[in-house]
């Protein structure tokens, strides 16, 4: 029994059909627990007030925005090396979820930033990195959409994902360098980690787990859709030839 068995679309469909309700149910429960706990059963921060509670959406969304790209990178590598179709389709399925998470992170960041820093947007390295990540997602999705042949699209988007990952990483460091270069010593940091009390950390972890499960659920659903679309394509092609 090898993990690659799940790379067979039929096997994947069977397994995911069984797993999906469980993962989805768990996602709903975890997400609700984390968010309700975070929003209603934590004390207000002594300095930031209730505004701080947006972090229960903001931080998990930012986490998934990056992890989604990492998952696409791994799937692209698997596709390029082992030619498993499910892998390529999973990468395709993850991209819109990832871009949504990036947008959520950006928007909640803006909403959080307005009362805290008095501005919706600052060219802080971290914010800028997510904006750049958003652009990379857009390009990746646009390339998938533009190419008709599914295997060609899978190959080209995989190559783009690899090269894009390198340049996204470069951008991350370049942006750090760039902002320091602009304003010496300015440090608008979103990092909630340093002084955070356990009372905030626990619900945040639950919310993070909820977002991970939500991501898995959405990607499973979308991968199943993509597999069905491919199957339809294959059946149509077969019908034309018969």
């Amino acid at each position: 029994m090898s993990i690659w068995e799940y790379a067979n679309p039929r096997k994947f469909m069977q397994t995911s059909a069984w797993a999906l309700p469980w993962v989805a149910g768990l996602a709903v429960v975890t997400l609700l627990t984390g968010l309700v706990w975070g929003f209603f059963f934590t004390v207000d921060d002594y300095r930031q007030g209730a505004t701080v509670k947006i972090l229960f959406v903001h931080v998990p969304a930012a986490l998934m925005a990056v992890n989604s790209w990492l998952m696409m990178l791994v799937c692209s590598l698997i596709w390029l090396i082992r030619r498993h179709h499910v892998s390529a389709l999973a990468a395709k399925a993850a991209a819109p979820v990832g871009v949504t998470m990036t947008l959520i992170a950006l928007f909640t960041g803006a909403i959080w930033g307005q009362p805290m820093w008095g501005t919706w947007w600052a060219w802080d390295p971290r914010l800028t990195s997510f904006l750049i990540l958003f652009l990379f997602y857009l390009g990746y999705i646009a390339l998938w959409e533009a190419i008709e042949d599914p295997d060609t699209a899978a190959d080209l988007t995989s190559v783009l994902c690899l090269v894009g990952s390198i340049f996204a990483l470069l951008s991350r460091y370049a942006v750090n360098f760039w902002n320091q270069g602009l304003h010496q010593g300015a440090s608008l940091s979103l990092a909630p980690g340093e002084r955070m009390a356990m009372a905030f950390k626990l619900p945040l972890y639950v919310a993070m787990a909820g977002f991970v499960l939500l991501f898995v659920t959405l990607v499973l659903i979308r991968t199943r859709t993509e597999i069905r679309a491919r199957r339809l394509r294959a059946l149509e092609a077969r019908g034309r030839m018969a």
């Binding site: 750049i132 652009l135 990379f136 857009l138 390009g139 646009a142 390339l143 783009l160 090269v163 894009g164 340049f167 996204a168 470069l170 951008s171 460091y173 370049a174 942006v175």
Partner: peptide, 10 residues
């Protein structure tokens, strides 16, 4: 352009 411009950032 959409693919290349983000790569130009660094």
């Amino acid at each position: 352009s959409l693919l290349v411009l983000p790569l130009y950032i660094p």
